[in-house]
Structure formats: C-alpha cells, structure tokens
C-alpha cells in the first residue's frame, strides 16, 4: 500500500548541462502521481525535451536524482533497458522503423524485449492498432502513411509494451492541422483509461481538458505549476503570463 501511494516519478534538483556552456536544466523538482496527466509547457529551449529525455535516460543527468517507480536511474544501471520498457515514448517526428511494416514495428520490441512469441505479439499489435483506429494499415510501410497515422502507430508501438508511463514530446507539432485532432483523441482516450502521462505540447486545449497538472518551464527551471485553471486563468508569475499571452495570440 505505501508503494502504491508513492509517486511513480520523483525528480530531485535535476541539472543537465551540454558541454560547458549550455545549462539546459538548472535544478528541476517534480513529482508525478500514478495515473495523472502532466502537461509541460514553455518557450523553445526551456528544457522541456531534456527533462522528458532524462526520465528514460536518453539523456543522463549531470546532477540530481531521477526515480522511476521506486528505482533510481544512474549511469551504471544494468537494468536501464527494463526500466525503459516500462516507459513508452512518443517523439515529435514519430521515429517509426521504415524498414518494417506497421505490424512489425509494433511487434519488434514485444518480441526481442518482452520475449513474447510471434502469435501473442501479433495479437497485441492488432489490438493496439485497433485502439488507435488504423487496423487497415497493418501491412503498410510507414512511408505509405500520413503523419497523423504514423504518430498513431508510434503510440500503438509504445502501448504494446504495456508501459506504466507514457512520455510525449510535442507529438502533434510536426503534423498538418487536420491531423492533430486524430492524435489528440487517442491521447485523450489514454488519459481517460488512467495512464500516467507526461506531455510536452503547445495544444492548450488538450491541456485544459486532460491535464491534472500543468507545469510551466522557462530557462531550465519549473517556474510555476498547478491545475490547468490555476495556470491558464490565474497565473502568478510574470513569465507565465507573458508566455501565455504569446501563445494565445497565435
């Protein structure tokens, strides 16, 4: 019982530098409870992607601690692959495997990481494809799909691993406007199903509807956090107000 109530992600005074000059994160603290949806907003270069990538160790922290589901990530983690298997990640540019069909994309990690047999992996893949609404594209190659379809396959690929956490790094930024909704709808469904999600996005509509917590970042720091109402309607920090006014002008 105490384990279940512990936050699934705990980040303590996280710093990340690139080289000598770039200080991408300057002491970020963050708690994410199980089943919550956290939306991260902030101007370009504020460290949103870096923060997300530190959570599955695509970037290794320079200083500070990242705890995922009771395990501390560190450079010597032998079990980093196991930890990553529990954390799905969706990228801005989809990053589907172009040499594999949609179905194979979703089956690969199930087979070589989870050790599932072919039949089981295929069944799971088909189920996830149905969930994101593109069963008919199972045997297409990624290049034959629209951006929105590719991103939904990417989501299905991550979900097929039965992750405990899903990270989204601007999943709709590379999409044509008419495809954004189909991806956001999938994400909304996922949030309703109780998935723990951390989403970097500029889609304020999504944040208002889906987020339990909105985090505003600037220059490598969490400037302000709260419910969508608090952040969008009554921001207390000047930088938040400035950012929101710029976003809403668009």
């Amino acid at each position: 019982m105490p384990v279940a109530s512990k936050p699934i992600i705990e980040i303590k005074s996280l710093h990340k530098t690139f080289g000598k000059d770039v200080h991408a994160l300057r002491g970020v603290d963050l708690l994410v409870e199980r089943g919550k949806v956290v939306v991260i907003v902030g101007p370009s270069g504020s460290g949103k992607s870096t923060l997300l990538r530190c959570i599955n160790h695509l970037e290794v922290e320079t200083h500070g601690e990242v705890w995922v589901d009771g395990k501390r990530l560190n450079e010597k983690n032998k079990d980093i692959d196991e930890i990553r298997a529990e954390i799905g990640m969706v990228f801005q540019l989809f990053n589907l495997f172009p040499h594999l069909t949609v179905l194979e994309n979703i089956m690969l990690a199930q087979r070589v990481v989870r050790g599932r047999g072919k039949a089981e992996a295929e069944e799971v893949a088909k189920k996830q494809l149905e969930r994101v609404g593109i069963s008919e594209k199972a045997h297409s190659f990624p290049a034959q799909l629209s951006g929105g379809q590719q991103q939904r396959v990417a989501i299905a690929r991550a979900l097929a691993m039965n992750p405990k956490i899903m990270l989204f790094d601007e999943p709709t930024s590379a999409l044509d406007p008419e495809m954004i909704k189909e991806v956001l709808d999938v994400m909304l469904d996922l949030a309703k199903d109780g998935m723990t999600m951390i989403v970097v996005t500029h889609e304020m509509g999504f944040a208002r509807v889906a987020a339990d917590q909105v985090i505003f970042m600037d220059q490598g720091l969490v400037v302000e956090q709260g419910t969508p109402q608090q952040i969008f309607n009554n921001p207390t920090q000047d930088r938040t107000k400035l950012f929101l006014s710029q976003i809403l002008q668009h």
Binding site: D81, R84, G88, M89, L93, N95, F97, A154, A158, M161
Partner: peptide, 22 residues
Amino acid sequence: DRGQMEAARSLGMSYTKAMRYV
C-alpha cells in the same frame, strides 16, 4: 537518423538489439 536508435532504446532494446534489428 539518431531518432531510430532513440526510439529503439526507448522501447527497452539494448544497444546491441537496437543495432541488430533497427
């Protein structure tokens, strides 16, 4: 593209598996 390795690793594949399959 670097994103291929990152996507593979984010799915829990080791470096070796990512190399071999992706």
